[in-house]
Structure formats: C-alpha cells, structure tokens
Amino acid sequence: METIPDTSGYMIAGFVVSFLTMGLYVLSIYLRNKNLNQDLETLLSLETEQTKKK
C-alpha cells in the first residue's frame, strides 16, 4: 500500500481561510450595524432639536 500523502498543511490553511472570511464578514455586519445605530441616534436628536426650534 502506498502511504497517504501528508497534506494537513493545506487542510489547516483551508479551514483558517473559511473561518477567517466568515468571521470578518460577521464583524463587518456588526460594525456597520453599530455605526448605523450611532448615525440614527444623532439624526434623531437633530430632528428633535429642529422641531423644538420651530
């Protein structure tokens, strides 16, 4: 029987890439969400100020 070639390095690289990509994507959704919520808050406070002035 021929021996099984050792390709575990490629395997590790593959899984690292998979998890890293998914992790980065989740992080990007989280960050975008956070920024948008911040924007939303500032905008809402601006809006209430505007209505007060009127």
């Binding site: 390709t7 593959g14 899984f15």
Partner: peptide, 24 residues
C-alpha cells in the same frame, strides 16, 4: 467542523486536504 475534521475518515489518495471538501 467536527464531522469534517475528526469524524470523516482520511481520504486515501489525497490525505487530509480532502477534508476541506465538505466546506467547499
């Protein structure tokens, strides 16, 4: 990940790299 990395047997011709196939 467990099934791909541990549970599934190592493929005889290509070795461990075949395990990325499940995620692929």
């Amino acid at each position: 990940s467990y099934l791909a990395l541990v549970f599934a047997p190592t493929e005889a011709v290509m070795g461990d790299v075949q395990r990325v196939f499940y995620f692929h």
